[in-house]
């Protein structure tokens, strides 16, 4: 169960990362993973096992679209680009993410416990 929840959280994050990466320009799957790695200074590595299912899922949902084209070294490659819907979704996901980060930070940076007893007696 615990494993499941973590995977799910990760999945949402992967989606966000992919959408962000594609918002910078169309790219094939390998390129997307490279781009995320580069942008995060090699900290975030999207597992290939999650990357492609995520790309296909996003495509199925209409957030990205895929087209067979030529790669830089002229090989046939499946190139993904973000759709208008995908861009909108990126916006909302990004705001959610910011809220999440903020919340995490305020918890993690807290130095003293909130006065719960005062609140309880107020109720």
């Amino acid at each position: 169960m615990a494993h499941d929840r973590r995977a799910k959280m990760l999945q949402g994050t992967v989606d966000l990362l992919i959408l962000q990466a594609l918002s910078l320009g169309p790219m094939h799957g390998w390129g997307v993973s490279r781009r995320i790695r580069a942008l995060s200074d090699d900290v975030l590595r999207v597992n290939q096992g999650s990357l492609y299912p995520a790309l296909h899922r996003l495509e199925y949902r209409g957030l990205v679209r895929a087209k067979w084209g030529a790669s830089a070294n002229n090989r046939r490659a499946k190139v993904y680009s973000i759709t208008a819907r995908g861009a909108r979704r990126l916006g909302t996901e990004f705001r959610d993410w910011e809220r999440f980060v903020l919340a995490m930070r305020s918890v993690l940076e807290a130095t003293e416990a909130p006065d719960l007893e005062a609140e309880e007696s107020a109720v």
């Binding site: 597992n47 290939q48 096992g49 492609y52 299912p53 995520a54 296909h56 899922r57 495509e59 199925y60």
Partner: peptide, 19 residues
Amino acid sequence: AVFGGETRWREAVRDARGA
């Protein structure tokens, strides 16, 4: 190796698409 089991990967991709 980064793909782990290729079979499983393929299934995951296919599962990702509801169709």
